[in-house]
């Protein structure tokens, strides 16, 4: 009897959680706007400090959904009204178009803890910028008066087949099913990139001050790679041909996992070719580790992968 009641209670609890999650999902991103992008080459996103999910679509319009936005009082300081653009969307953001670039920026009425879901045509270039804290721009880590500030956020980008250019202060970056070319730099945060393929027209570069970088590339990607991690390690299961290792005293390790050889190089930088000569890919972290891993490798039973 007790067990039956307990079982019913568990079922009801699960259903209740599902309903709450379901309602939350729809209610949370209730505010939205949609605009056409004819004649636009690039979308620039400035200073949106909440979690940012950017996905690719096949249409000719941009859809912006916002969650957790609360209009902050209009009495803002003079410096802030100069620093931020006016809210022309009633969503706490400013949207303007300048020279074939659509700019989505923080407004003077944007509140902290707002999360964004932005769907952008996949043919467009993307640029994401977050201001770095300094005295002149008034952004600091410790400010917590209801207005947005520079704090660690998550940025997810998915499905783009064009250039992605990111420069942020403190963000965890996740890029999935992208082709690049990429130009990424960040002060803090981890970077996780899953390439659909690597664009062979233009070079890609990823540079971090503090954080780990993990890059998954299709196993047959052609590239000249430069990997720098002078205070961490570089791990890869790619065979780096004609490799130039900066320090002769570099400690290296070689492990075999399920027949695949993984090499680890400590505190060094390596330049070399993976597969064949292709577009340059530069990955740098000043304080952190780098993982450059093969994906989609065809599985051959009982085959021992060697270099």
């Amino acid at each position: 009897m007790y067990n039956k009641v307990k079982q019913n209670f568990m079922v009801m609890k699960t259903v209740y959680i599902f309903i709450v999650v379901f309602l939350h999902h729809f209610a949370s991103f209730s505010q939205s706007t949609e605009l056409a992008v004819a004649g636009t080459e690039k979308v620039r996103i400035n200073d949106l400090y909440g979690d940012l999910k950017i996905s690719a679509n096949n249409s000719e319009s941009i859809r912006i959904e916002i969650a957790g936005h609360k209009n902050i009082p209009e009495s803002i300081s003079e410096t802030e009204s100069v620093r931020y653009k006016p809210d022309n969307t009633q969503l706490g953001i400013n949207i303007e178009k300048k020279d074939r670039i659509l700019i989505i920026s923080a407004s003077d009425r944007q509140s902290q803890f707002t999360n964004y879901r932005i769907s952008i045509p996949k043919k467009l270039m993307i640029e994401i910028r977050n201001k770095f804290p300094s005295k002149s721009n008034g952004i600091s880590f410790n400010k917590n008066d209801g207005r947005y500030d520079a704090f660690m956020n998550n940025i997810n980008v998915r499905g783009f087949k064009n250039e992605i250019d990111i420069n942020v202060f403190a963000s965890d970056l996740k890029l999935n099913n992208v082709t690049g070319p990429l130009a990424i730099s960040a002060f803090y945060g981890d970077v996780n990139i899953d390439f659909l393929r690597l664009n062979q027209d233009n070079p890609s570069q990823i540079e971090l001050f503090n954080g780990n970088i993990k890059v998954n590339l299709p196993y047959d990607t052609k590239s000249i790679v430069t990997l720098n991690s002078e205070s961490g390690y570089i791990q890869t299961d790619f065979t780096i041909k004609k490799a130039t290792v900066m320090s002769k005293n570099t400690r290296t390790e070689k492990n075999r996992v399920h027949g695949v050889i993984f090499r680890k190089y400590y505190n060094t930088n390596i330049t070399g070719i993976i597969n064949k000569k292709g577009t340059p890919l530069t990955i740098t972290t000043y304080n952190g580790n780098i993982k450059l891993l093969r994906k989609d490798y065809p599985y051959i039973p009982f085959y021992i992968y060697t270099d």
Binding site: E41, K42, E127, E163, D165, N202, P203, P280
Partner: peptide, 14 residues
């Protein structure tokens, strides 16, 4: 190069 493209500029430097 396309003046709006970051990677085009980086390619020029490369």
């Amino acid at each position: 190069f396309n003046p709006h493209s970051t990677s085009d500029k980086i390619k020029a430097l490369t």
